[in-house]
């Protein structure tokens, strides 16, 4: 493998990654957006978080799995409950991980 060519490709990749990350904050953060745009952007975090999360819970292997062996899905229930009740990020993460770890240990899934 031509490592110099890889390095140049990496620089292209860096620009392709950095551009989308930079342009919106660069262009938008200094202006006041119209209320309609603000209202729309306010829903983006919930939509993005759900769009990133749901596939990893429902279709971890590339196809939908709702059965009892889908630990990622069922462990979401205690993790979400802890987040809702305690508003604690770390507590929720620990409960989620402990649930998955315990189920793997006990049931060998």
């Amino acid at each position: 493998m031509d490592q110099d060519a890889v390095t140049w490709t990496l620089i292209g990749m860096a620009m392709a990654t950095y551009g989308p990350r930079l342009l919106p904050v660069w262009l938008l953060s200094s202006r006041s957006l119209p209320p309609a745009a603000m209202a729309w952007l306010r829903y983006v975090p919930a939509a993005v978080l759900a769009a990133l999360l749901f596939p990893s819970l429902l279709a971890n292997g590339g196809h939908i799995s709702l059965g009892p062996r889908n630990l990622f899905l069922w462990a979401a229930l205690p993790a979400a409950l802890v987040a809702y009740k305690t508003r604690s990020l770390v507590g929720s993460v620990l409960v989620g991980m402990a649930t998955v770890a315990a189920a793997r240990y006990l049931f060998g899934i």
């Binding site: 978080l49 999360l53 990622f72 462990a75 979401a76 979400a80 987040a83 604690s88």
Partner: peptide, 11 residues
Amino acid sequence: PSMFIALLVLQ
């Protein structure tokens, strides 16, 4: 995944 669950709930 559990971090995203918590942050979605908090959001």
